[in-house]
């Protein structure tokens, strides 16, 4: 199950200068595990609280959520609201 993960370019220094990653993951939890395993420099970013956009839909991370094949996933800093 391949998904495309889009990262903000300031994180490229932790991902071998790539800001688009094609990764195999069935769920959000698995994806986070793969990111942490393959790119350990991302751990502080991931631990700091993130928001997701999966095929355009913004949400909090749900590690059990299954990912559609070919999903476009954006990782962003956790959004704050007033």
């Amino acid at each position: 199950m391949a998904v495309k993960v889009y990262l903000w370019s300031s994180l490229k220094k932790f991902t071998n200068d790539q800001d688009i990653l094609t990764l195999e993951a069935k769920s959000i939890g698995e994806l986070l595990g793969v990111l942490e395993r393959d790119f350990p420099g991302l751990k502080p970013f991931l631990d700091g609280g993130i928001s997701f956009a999966i095929n355009g839909e913004l949400s909090n991370p749900n590690s059990n959520e299954l990912l559609p094949d070919g999903a476009e996933i954006y990782l962003m800093q956790k959004l704050k609201g007033g």
Partner: peptide, 20 residues
């Protein structure tokens, strides 16, 4: 400064973001 801050920034930079 956290993990995101590039080298050479002022010590008062707490974090840095870049995308486009």
């Amino acid at each position: 400064g956290d993990f995101s801050v590039p080298e050479g920034c002022s010590p008062n930079v707490a974090s840095y973001i870049e995308f486009g």
